[in-house]
């Protein structure tokens, strides 16, 4: 059970949050211009890596804000949190 440091509220139990999968997948601005394959890439394909992963989380039973989390999926350590729109920390790649 993680402790997640919500950038708006501070450290809270995982049960207050919901996970929103991989972060930094931007919805295409002109979907109609995309081929089926390109659209499928956006819609379905996710990295799901073992190691350092950028994820979206929502403080759903708190401030309801979405934010980003850098998590090492191999040991569940959360390395960083940052707000939507902020650039991902560069030291995790």
């Amino acid at each position: 059970m993680f402790l997640i440091n919500c950038p708006f509220c501070g450290e809270r139990d995982q049960s207050e949050f919901s996970s929103g999968g991989e972060a930094h997948i931007v919805r295409p601005k002109q979907p109609t211009e995309l081929s089926d394959d390109e659209w499928a890439e956006y819609l379905f394909m996710r990295k799901n890596i073992k190691g350092i992963q950028f994820e979206r989380w929502n403080h759903v039973h708190g401030c309801r804000k979405w934010f980003n989390v850098v998590r090492d999926t191999s040991n569940d350590k959360i390395l960083s949190v940052y707000k939507m729109g902020e650039k991902p920390p560069v030291n995790y790649k």
Binding site: S18, G20, V26, R27, R56, N58, V60, R64, K65, W66, M84, G85
Partner: peptide, 13 residues
């Protein structure tokens, strides 16, 4: 509501 909030906060802020 969650879905709408998600789009508002992340795709169309």
């Amino acid at each position: 509501l969650s879905k709408l909030e998600d789009y508002l906060q992340t795709e169309w802020p």
